[in-house]
Design a binder for these strands. Sequence first.
DNA 1: TTATAATCTGGTAGCGATACCAAGAACGGG
DNA 2: CCCGTTCTTGGTATCGCTACCAGATTATAA
Lengths: 343, 343
Amino acid sequence: MSGKARRNGNGDAVTMSDIARHAGVSPMTVSRALSDPSTVSDKMRRKVEAAVRHYGYLPNRIAGSLSSKRSNVVGLIVPSFRNSLYASMIQAISDVLRANGFHLMIANSGHSLDDEEAAVSAFLAQRVCGLVLHNTTHTKQLRELVRRTGVPVIETGNLPAEPLDMAVSYSNFEAARAMTAHLGRLGYRKIGFVTLPLADNDRSRERRRGYFAALKDMGLPVDPGLVLEAAGGGFAEGAGAVVRLVQTHPKLDAAFFAGDVLAMGALLECQRRGWRVPKRIAIASFDDLDLLHHSVPAVTTLRIPREAIGRRSAELLVNRLLGAQPERLRIDLGFEIVQRDST
Amino acid sequence: MSGKARRNGNGDAVTMSDIARHAGVSPMTVSRALSDPSTVSDKMRRKVEAAVRHYGYLPNRIAGSLSSKRSNVVGLIVPSFRNSLYASMIQAISDVLRANGFHLMIANSGHSLDDEEAAVSAFLAQRVCGLVLHNTTHTKQLRELVRRTGVPVIETGNLPAEPLDMAVSYSNFEAARAMTAHLGRLGYRKIGFVTLPLADNDRSRERRRGYFAALKDMGLPVDPGLVLEAAGGGFAEGAGAVVRLVQTHPKLDAAFFAGDVLAMGALLECQRRGWRVPKRIAIASFDDLDLLHHSVPAVTTLRIPREAIGRRSAELLVNRLLGAQPERLRIDLGFEIVQRDST
DNA sequence: TTATAATCTGGTAGCGATACCAAGAACGGG
DNA sequence: CCCGTTCTTGGTATCGCTACCAGATTATAA
């Protein structure tokens, strides 16, 4: 062992030249045998494979990337890991990427646009070959960085009017509007709305906008007092919100929660207080946490195709990386209202 | 723009030499000004910083890593993203890494040891500087790979008898044993156990072992019929399991679920069927899904310090990468029984 | 059999940074 | 004012791989 290479604890890694020497071929042949076997004769390929197996050779993709100016790492930025709604999307992305030989780097922006920008910078310094951003409003710097480097980018979480590059999502505005209209059709007239934090979050704001639009569509009065901003997205906040709404507006007959955990918290609180759902108050949710289907009563909700969004995002990215023509896309994967017993 | 560099959509990236030329200094000075400013005079540093800002220079960490044989990317492998219990750990790891200038690559093993091995190979090819594995049984190849490359590794999810390198976790065995004993102390005598899938999952098996051990400790009969293996970890499986247990064992007075979602599914099913909890049957859970605290009744559970585990894991890794002596560690972060109304 | 194309293989020159060494500038003590 | 330190700076040589071109080998056609 040569002293210095130990720094990284990386031992003296076997290199391609080592393999080449032991296989009795040139390094180029080893390179080809590994990255595009069809361009090498069977005899050579077998010699190389044998040596690779024998020495447990692990190609150095860092060197490969530097040389080829290509990388196989995709960067994903989500606002937070805590929210389970990102989980199914991440899973889908991860699956598609892996099936195509790509890897995933993840960072979270903590709902801060500046942190998102910092994460993108860091990813670009790592020379990721593509980006997925769960966010559609960005700092000017970020837009500039993306433009300059020309990395393929998928935006998701909402449908931006002007995508940076490609967008795959559903419309928060339309979804909230549809659910509010649905409640109206069911006969509810005084519909409260509990929103997730609005700061730096276009998705939350779009949902609220959808709620207002539906009321207007139906000719229902728009009462700002019926809108509550929950400080967080937890059970407790949902519980607190439903109580406050009911107490300040005794005539309230339905409440629409902009997050599934909020809705569940509210439902549980109603159970605790003996408020019948949907008799005393109807509850509707945004996003189909599995739980909402199993609760008593099961909760009416919007099913967002989180998994499909992840899958399509990754597929688009992979296609582009594999040579598809750049094309500014804006794919709407829609949503679905799931009517259950809580409304 | 020179035609060829376009391949990656990467434009013609500004390089360190470009910055050097425009700042009127040598590339080495730029390198130093960026990576260790204290070794460079103020005048030089300012010139470099100005040029960096002006050209929007993004250092190429791929090249940096190749040259320095150091990387700042940590690989994390979890069985799945779907389970929220990984989420808080991932968040903690991500936070600690970012605070120290490291990045996170993530893969999922889908509960397969071979896939875990494949993911580790891929990560090592990317020359990650450290690994976190949420699993403590591995293929022989994987152990060999880790030994040979000498990467720092954290194992978590369970406390292995023989860690590969460092382990940070709690003991599934002790936790399950403690909860079962707790139920015994509360007076329950016929305690069912619903386990998560056991195949390739030492954590599940350890939990079951803990359950059996506690029964033995208490002199209670060990009836294999009281143990059910749920096919998955969802609400439906928990619901199905509690029904089957109660129907096949009318005398059953408590059920201990090896997963929080299972327990919640069972609780909801009991509500649906009008089985009083804990009167007819007590329900205890493993892992403190937030929901269990808000359900009616609130569910007794084991609180596992998922976040602390993530944090400590990342901290240990970072320390080691920053120069701490290798040391075979096995850190037990314990657990806590949270007695609530369901038992 | 020879010409000509189609396959394979190897040599060379980077990719964009950092390590290491050596030389020049600044500094202080005697 | 000289000389040994200390602080800065720059040159050179990789890091391990792939792109590109050229030469060698084999196959195919004439």
